[in-house]
Simulated assay, not measured.
Amino acid sequence: MHADKKMCGMEPSSEYVDLAAEVLSILSDPTRIRIVLALRQVDELPVGALAEIVGKKPSGVSQHLARLRMARMVTTRQEGTSVLYRLTDEHAIAVVAEAIKQAEHAVANGQLPPHHHSAGQPRAGS
């Protein structure tokens, strides 16, 4: 049973801790977070469209995409003369989503953050 926990990487002594820190480091840039969020909304996008969405120059976005691609968080597909970028899997968005939830808690000033409110449910204190 202990071996199963270690294999999944959830033990403090896991061999994946250093790699997890690298993942968090790569996702520590606001532009890269915006890219991940943009690719979550639209399955595939070229650099120019991503640059417009995140409000940065295509050359800068291209550099961020290269880092995400090296980390295997995004992948590419050629369509004619365009290179389309997409998330490799759901894990990068899961990390970003949890970080955003934590950020919401950090600024909630003791109130329930937005992700705790479901549609049609009254807010605390109302």
Rank of each mutant, 00 (worst) to 15 (best):
M1E: 13
M1S: 15
H2V: 14
K5D: 13
K5C: 10
G9Q: 02
Y16D: 12
L19E: 14
A21T: 12
L24Q: 07
S25M: 14
I26H: 08
L27D: 00
S28M: 07
S28Q: 08
P30V: 02
T31V: 11
R32Y: 01
V36Q: 00
V36G: 06
L37T: 10
R40Y: 08
R40F: 08
E44S: 13
L45H: 00
L45E: 07
L45P: 00
P46D: 09
V47M: 02
V54D: 03
G55F: 02
K57M: 09
L65F: 01
L68A: 04
M73E: 03
M73P: 00
M73Y: 08
V74P: 05
V74R: 00
V74Y: 04
Q78F: 02
E79D: 15
S82P: 07
V83L: 11
L87S: 04
L87F: 05
D89M: 01
D89S: 09
E90M: 10
A94I: 07
V96A: 07
A97H: 04
A99E: 11
I100D: 07
K101C: 09
Q102K: 13
Q102Y: 08
H105R: 15
H105F: 01
A106H: 08
A106I: 09
A108K: 05
A108C: 01
A108M: 05
L112V: 06
P113R: 05
H115Q: 07
S118G: 08
G120E: 00
P122R: 10
